[in-house]
Amino acid sequence: MVKAYLQTSKAWLLRSVKNALMLLMEKSRATTLLGGTITAAAEAIGISPQAYSQWPAVLPKRLADRVVAALARKHLSAVLLGGDPNEANAMQVSLDLATQLSSGANHP
Rank of each mutant, 00 (worst) to 15 (best):
A78I: 07
L76G: 05
E43K: 01
N19H: 14
I38G: 09
K61Y: 07
A4W: 04
D84R: 05
Y5R: 00
W55S: 06
A72M: 15
Q7T: 11
A51L: 03
A70K: 01
I38C: 07
A20Q: 14
G83S: 15
R29S: 00
T39E: 13
N89Y: 15
R15D: 14
S53C: 06
L24G: 12
E26G: 06
Y52E: 01
Q100F: 15
L97A: 03
L76D: 05
W55P: 01
R62E: 06
S53E: 04
I47F: 00
A64R: 00
L24R: 11
D96V: 07
E87M: 11
I45L: 05
V79T: 14
A4G: 04
T32C: 02
A69V: 04
G82T: 03
N19G: 13
G82N: 10
T99S: 08
A88I: 09
N86G: 12
R62I: 01
R15H: 12
W12D: 08
Q92K: 10
A42E: 04
A72S: 06
Q100A: 09
L81C: 03
L59G: 04
H75E: 04
L33I: 05
P49W: 00
V67M: 00
L97H: 07
A78F: 00
E43A: 03
K61S: 03
Y5W: 13
S48W: 01
P60H: 13
L13E: 07
S28A: 13
S16P: 04
A57R: 07
Q100H: 07
T31Q: 09
S28W: 13
L21V: 13
T39K: 10
Y52F: 15
G36E: 08
Q7K: 03
T32Q: 06
V58D: 10
T37K: 06
L80E: 04
S48T: 15
S16V: 09
Q92G: 07
L81K: 07
A64H: 10
N19R: 04
P60M: 01
E43H: 07
P60S: 02
P49N: 00
D84Q: 11
M22H: 12
D84Y: 13
L33R: 08
R15E: 14
E26H: 02
V93A: 14
D84G: 06
K3C: 00
M22F: 11
L95Q: 09
L24C: 09
W12S: 10
R73M: 12
K18F: 15
S94G: 08
Q7H: 05
V68P: 02
L71Y: 03
T32V: 13
L23D: 00
L80R: 08
S53T: 01
K27C: 03
A30H: 12
V79P: 08
